[in-house]
Structure formats: C-alpha cells, structure tokens
C-alpha cells in the first residue's frame, strides 16, 4: 500500500467518523468550560463597573496586574491549577476515547455508532491507559537521552561557546525526527489491542514495534507526514489565536466559532493518524496472540 493511498484511506475513515469527532469536541468543550466560566466571572468581578477594562481592548495590559491586587494572583492561580486539572482529566478522557476510535478504525472503518463507540472506549480503557503510561516513559527517556543529556553536556563542556546553541538545535531536530517512530508504535499497539481484544500492554507495545519494522519507511512516513502537517497547523492556529484581538460581541462570537472549527480540525487530524496507522498495520488473526 503506498503512502498516499494509506493517507487517503485514513482520511476517509476519519471523515466517516465525524460524529465521534464531534462527540469528543463537545465533551472536551463542556469539561473546559467548568474552569473557563468561573475564570471569566472572576475577571468580571475584579473589574465590576470599572472602565479600566477598556485598557484590555487591544490585549491584556500587564500594567494593571498590580491594581488588580490579590484577585490577580487568585486569577493566575485558578487558571494554572484549573489548567493542570484539565490536562489531567483530558489525558484520561482522550485515553478513553482512543479505545473507541481504534475499535472503529480497526473493525468498523469509522462507522461505529455512538453507543458502540463508548462501549468500545470503556472496554479498552485500562490496556490503553497502560500503553499511554508506557509510551510516556519511552517519550521521557527519548527526550532525556537526545535533548537533556546533550543540553547538560553543552552547558558544562561548551560553556560560552558559539557552537553550543547550534548543537542543541541539531539534537532537537533528531528528537523531533524520532517522534514518528514512537507515535507509530503507540498507535499500532493500540490498534493491536483493539483488533485482538487482548489487554496485555507490554505485548501490545511489542506488536507495535513489530508493525513498525514491517515496511519501516512506509510506517515512518505516514506518521511523519501527518506530524508535519499537525505542527504547521498548530503553529498557524496558535498564531491566529494569539494575534486576534476581537473587541466587540459579534467579533468575539465569530472568534469563538473560528477557534472551535480549528480545534475540530485538530481532532480530525488526530483521528486521521489513528486511521492511517490502522490502515497500514497488518491485522493479526483474532486470538492468535491471546491465551
């Protein structure tokens, strides 16, 4: 199967599962609003009837942080603590939904109904959680070896040298080029679990590596292409969001719609990667690797 055909088929499968993507978007949005709405209220309460808020018309005026006093610290604390909680909840939520997506792309080619999607998500949650934690360890190890150690070495051995910063960039590039390997392994492992119904995370990761080894460059290229597109997309999205300063009600509403459209696209791209890896990986016979 060629690269383009795999990517095209993956794209079609991801698009077919648009209801699942929208479900994921709604749940994510509601979850985040549990934190963002109180934050907005806090901000509104700080300013009350004050006209100082006009100074935020074209961006956050940091000079007002002192005037906001303790509530500003509360705001920052609530935003950072809330953000951390959301990240944790998001980790579990997305690990959960990944089960449904992989089941959908492994067996139903994106056409899973919502109740089946949730059932499959629940069924695969624990093995997927184990795989996610294993992959986090692998990512951390990879980052430490390829970026951390060279950075420490550069800072101590090449202190003050002009070569140091360039070396760090080279190691960062190597780190980035290694990422498709780990992403493919994590996706193929989960696909293996979804396809076989096995709950053994270590065997799943092993199967992921085997799947990678079979036609390595194709496996690598699939994820690399999607990863590059993702990086460009995320960069442009963040750039758009950071530099947009809508100042009246309608513009702010349009801005909200635009950002949500961007996020849905981002979810589609994630689903596209899952589906493409499922397309490529050879499906082992059901039960062949289970006891």
């Amino acid at each position: 199967m060629t690269l383009l055909r795999t990517l095209r088929k993956g794209g079609v499968a991801a698009a077919t599962s648009y209801k699942l993507i929208l479900l994921m978007w709604v749940i994510t949005l509601v979850m985040i609003m549990f934190v963002s709405v109180p934050l907005k209220s806090l901000l509104v309460n700080i300013f009350g009837n004050s006209m100082t808020v006009e100074r935020f018309a074209d961006g956050f005026d940091l000079g007002l942080a002192g005037d906001m006093g303790k509530p500003f610290l509360n705001l920052i604390s609530a935003a950072s603590t809330g953000g951390l909680l959301l990240m944790t909840a998001g980790f579990f939520l997305y690990t959960f939904f990944a089960g449904g997506f992989f089941a959908s792309y492994s067996r139903a080619w994106g056409t899973l109904k919502t109740n089946a999607f949730i059932r499959e998500s629940a069924r695969h949650f624990l093995p997927f959680l184990k795989i996610a934690l294993l992959m986090i360890l692998i990512f951390a190890g990879w980052t430490f070896i390829v970026v951390g150690l060279p950075a420490i070495g550069t800072m101590t051995l090449l202190r003050g040298s002009t070569v140091g910063p360039y070396l760090i960039w080279i190691f960062f590039a190597i780190w980035l080029l290694g990422m498709p390997v780990w992403l493919f392994v994590s996706d193929a492992s989960r696909r293996w679990v979804a396809a076989t119904g096995s709950g053994q995370a270590l065997r799943a990761v092993g199967a992921g590596f085997r799947a990678l080894a079979e036609r390595f460059w194709l496996s690598y290229s699939i994820v690399l292409v999607i990863m590059i597109l993702n990086i460009i997309f995320i960069f442009l999205s963040m750039w758009f969001t950071a530099w947009s300063v809508p100042s009246n009600g309608w513009m702010i509403f349009l801005f909200f719609l635009a950002t949500q459209a961007l996020f849905i696209t981002r979810l589609f791209m994630k689903a596209w990667r899952y589906a493409s890896v499922c397309q490529k990986a050879a499906i082992p016979e059901r039960g062949s690797n289970t006891k």
Partner: peptide, 17 residues
C-alpha cells in the same frame, strides 16, 4: 473577559490534544 475566556478554552483544547 469573554475574549480572554475564549482564548483560554482554545489553549486548553490544543494543549490537551
């Protein structure tokens, strides 16, 4: 406040994903 809340929502969405 609305604009900042919207940006926070989007930032969190992107970070989680």
């Amino acid at each position: 406040a609305r604009r900042m809340a919207n940006k926070f929502v989007f930032l969190m969405q992107m970070l989680i994903s």
